[in-house]
Computed example of a mutant assay.
Amino acid sequence: MRLEPLYQQDREQAKLEGERLVVENLLRVRFGSLDNELSAIISPLLAFLPEEFTPLLMQLSREELIARFGGQS
């Protein structure tokens, strides 16, 4: 049994979980808490690279983020 594919899969999963935590923390810092609307934009944001979603999280207002990413799943 080859362990390399399992290792790569675990690494990718850990990376995605880490990125999710970063997005959640940035949203909490900016907006105080994660409600349903903000929670709903996390997955669409994770479709972007960290260097793309970080400036968006830091610059766009809550309303702009929800308008831009809230209609996606």
Rank of each mutant, 00 (worst) to 15 (best):
Y7A: 08
Y7K: 14
Y7F: 04
Y7T: 10
Q8H: 14
Q9D: 12
D10A: 05
D10Y: 12
D10C: 00
R11I: 00
R11V: 03
E12A: 06
E12H: 13
Q13H: 07
Q13P: 01
Q13S: 04
A14G: 12
A14V: 00
K15I: 05
K15A: 05
K15N: 13
L16G: 11
L16S: 15
E17D: 04
E17Q: 15
G18N: 10
G18Y: 10
G18L: 01
E19W: 03
E19Q: 11
R20Y: 05
R20P: 00
R20E: 09
L21I: 06
V22H: 13
V22K: 09
V22N: 11
V23W: 00
V23C: 06
V23A: 11
E24L: 02
N25S: 11
N25R: 15
N25D: 05
N25Q: 15
L26S: 02
L27A: 00
L27P: 03
R28E: 13
R30Y: 04
R30T: 04
R30W: 02
R30C: 14
F31T: 01
F31H: 05
F31N: 08
G32M: 01
G32Y: 09
G32I: 00
G32K: 14
G32N: 05
S33F: 04
S33T: 07
S33K: 15
S33P: 03
L34W: 09
L34F: 03
L34A: 09
L34N: 13
D35I: 00
D35G: 04
N36Y: 14
N36A: 09
N36G: 08
N36I: 00
N36E: 12
E37F: 01
E37S: 11
L38Q: 04
L38S: 04
S39M: 02
S39V: 00
A40S: 02
A40Q: 07
I41L: 08
I42W: 06
I42K: 08
I42F: 02
I42M: 07
S43M: 11
S43N: 12
S43C: 01
S43D: 14
S43V: 00
P44G: 12
P44V: 06
P44F: 14
L45M: 05
L45G: 15
L46H: 07
L46W: 13
A47E: 14
A47G: 10
A47M: 11
A47V: 06
A47I: 11
A47P: 09
F48R: 15
F48M: 10
P50Q: 15
P50E: 07
P50W: 09
E51C: 07
E52D: 07
E52N: 14
E52G: 01
E52M: 03
E52W: 06
E52F: 06
E52P: 00
E52A: 06
E52R: 09
F53Y: 13
F53G: 11
F53E: 14
F53K: 15
P55C: 06
P55V: 03
P55L: 05
P55I: 09
L56H: 13
L57G: 11
L57C: 03
L57Q: 10
L57K: 14
L57M: 08
M58I: 06
M58L: 09
Q59Y: 05
Q59W: 05
Q59N: 06
L60P: 01
L60E: 12
S61W: 10
S61T: 12
S61P: 03
R62F: 03
E63I: 01
E63S: 06
E64C: 03
E64M: 07
E64F: 08
L65A: 07
L65H: 12
R68S: 09
